[in-house]
Amino acid sequence: MTITFRRETFRDDYNFSNSAVGIRRFPFPFDRDHYMYAVNIEPHVKGHPGTIYESLIDVDEHYVAEMQDRALVLAEDPLRSQSLPHMELAGWDLLELLMEQLAAGYPAHFELRRSGKRWRWVNRPLGIDDTFVFGAASTLPYGPMEYITRQAQGDFCILDQRDGNLWMDAGMVTTQADWSLDFDLGMNFMEWHAPVPRAHEMGVFDRALKFMLNLGQGQPMRRFNWTMTVNPRLDTSPETYPKWGPDRRSVTADNVGDKVHLRVELQSFWRLPRSNAIVFPIRCYLIKLEELVTVPKWARRMHRVLRDLPPDLVDYKGLTRWRPIAVDYLAAFDDGAATSPGIWPD
């Protein structure tokens, strides 16, 4: 499969958009007309062509632009990529996983040739052709995690497993929904989830941690998370809040369809074989409301979900200021008809 990569930006003039095909393959996260937390975990297995599950590590039309945006973020703030000293082996695990998945899923764009420990990696969209020794960080321009995650869409957290807990000891985080790797680095699973409302009382994190600790090799899992973002900005981090926080006041009835985006995270979990760590890719997908409403089922359901969202979740997700405008906009596309089960377009 050959992808035509879009020229677009996630800052300044914000000329990001989805093609018609890109809209159809968007991972709409709501399988019913209301939303509440659930440990909505399922096996991460391949799905139909034309969906984001076509390959387990998805590459889409935004790949090149997203990698350029990541490079800009890192140039301004190198601490978006950090790996504690004991996590280098996990970095090699991740490098192998991503190179294998990219080469298998998109042979027209990526190629991996191994000759013992000597590996050659070709990334045609980014113009990379490197030969290196697997396991020898000095043969790469960056550490193994940073090297490969500069070439893969989505954020990556690598969790060390010890003492019956998971520890966020490495990561590449530049497309995040308002959280900071630099702040969370070294925290355990319960510590970094502490700010999430409701879920602790529901026992969600106790169950999720227990599940994650037993995550098996060769058996990746996935779940969705979501929020909404004003302007198609990938880097909505606490560090850059002054650059994007005020945008929340810029939404009007005239621009809401273009400015407000549903932001969906496909989170997957993979046991890394050599290090016994877990990698947690958080892949961010953006869609404008005016793109989303071109799918009638999604328009109806989005309206109902956003209208009925509990107030504490509205605040936690940062939607408070402009939500009424978005609900009014979506209401025009909701005729009250029943929606079909599941997430896919009718």
Binding site: Q217, P273, R274, N276
Partner: peptide, 8 residues
């Protein structure tokens, strides 16, 4: 075969 970690 899949790689593994010491102790597996």
């Amino acid at each position: 075969l899949p790689a593994f970690s010491g102790g597996a």
